[in-house]
Design a protein around this nucleic acid. Structure first.
Lengths: 121, 121
DNA sequence: GTGGTAATGAAAATCATTTTCATTTGTGCT
DNA sequence: AGCACAAATGAAAATGATTTTCATTACCAC
C-alpha cells in the first residue's frame, strides 16, 4: 500500500524540500537513480496523502511539493537578474492566521513573494 | 493592440466574474457567439495585462480569471469550493517594504495568497 | 482602391499529469 | 526450493489546458 518511495522523499529533501515532480525526476536521473516518472508522481501523491508533504501551485500551474513542517520561507526575487533571497515571513504567518480566523477558514496555508530590482540591476 | 475583446469581458462578467478560459469559451458557444478558443485565451491574457482581471489557480491547476476592483488586495481562497474573499493586506505591504529595503531592492511589488477550507467545506 | 497592420481561429505543438497494461518484485506458504 | 498472489514499477498512450504557427480576414489611413 505504501507507495511513499523513500528515494523520492530523500530526493525532495535534498532539493531543499521544495520541488515539482518533474524536477524531482530530473534530479534523480542526473544522480543516476533508476526510476520512472510515473513512480515519482505516485510517490509524491502518496506522500501528500500521508501528509508528509504539502502541494502548492506555481504561477504557471505546475504543482510543487514541499515537506510539511519544514520551516517555510518566502522569496525576494530580482526582476532584472533573477537573483533570489530567502527571507523570513513572521509577519505573514500571523497575518494569514488572523485573516483565516476572521473569515472562518481552517487548514490554511499561504504563498507570498516579493519581486523588484536588486542593488546591482 | 487592444486584444481585450469586449465580448469576452462581458461573458466573464455574466459568469459571475469568475471562470476559466475553457468555461468562458463554452459559455459563449452555448450562447451562440462565434469565437475561437485562441481568441478567448488572448483576450483573457490581455485583460490580465491591463489589470482588469485577476488570475488565480484552481486546485487542479486550471487558471481561473476573475474581475477585480482597482484597490490592491489579496485573496483568501477555499480549496474546497473555490469561494474567494478579497482581503486587506496592510501587514503585508509593510513587510514587503521592510524586506526590500533590508536587501537593497527597489521598485518592488508582491503577491500573497491564503488558501484553506471555508466554513461550509 | 491599395498597402500595411492588427485580429482571428483552425490545427498542430507543448507540457504536466493521469491512465493503461504488461512485467517485475516481494512475500507468505508448503 | 517452488508456487501463488498482491503490490510496485515504468513505458507508452491518453488527457486536458494552454501556446504557437500560420494563413486568412477585417480594418484603417492615404
Amino acid at each position: 500500500m505504501s507507495r511513499s518511495n523513500p528515494r523520492v522523499l530523500s530526493t525532495l529533501e535534498r532539493a531543499g524540500g521544495f520541488a515539482s515532480a518533474q524536477e524531482v525526476y530530473r534530479l534523480m536521473q542526473r544522480e543516476g537513480e533508476s526510476i520512472g516518472l510515473t513512480t515519482v508522481y505516485r510517490a509524491l501523491q502518496s506522500l501528500v496523502n500521508d501528509k508528509i508533504v504539502d502541494v502548492l501551485r506555481r504561477d504557471d500551474g505546475e504543482a510543487i511539493y514541499r515537506l510539511c513542517g519544514e520551516a517555510h520561507h518566502h522569496h525576494l526575487v530580482c526582476k532584472g537578474c533573477g537573483d533570489t533571497v530567502e527571507i523570513e515571513g513572521g509577519a505573514i504567518e500571523k497575518w494569514a492566521k488572523m485573516m483565516a480566523e476572521e473569515h472562518g477558514f481552517r487548514d490554511v496555508g499561504h504563498t507570498a513573494e516579493i519581486f523588484g530590482l536588486c542593488g546591482k540591476c
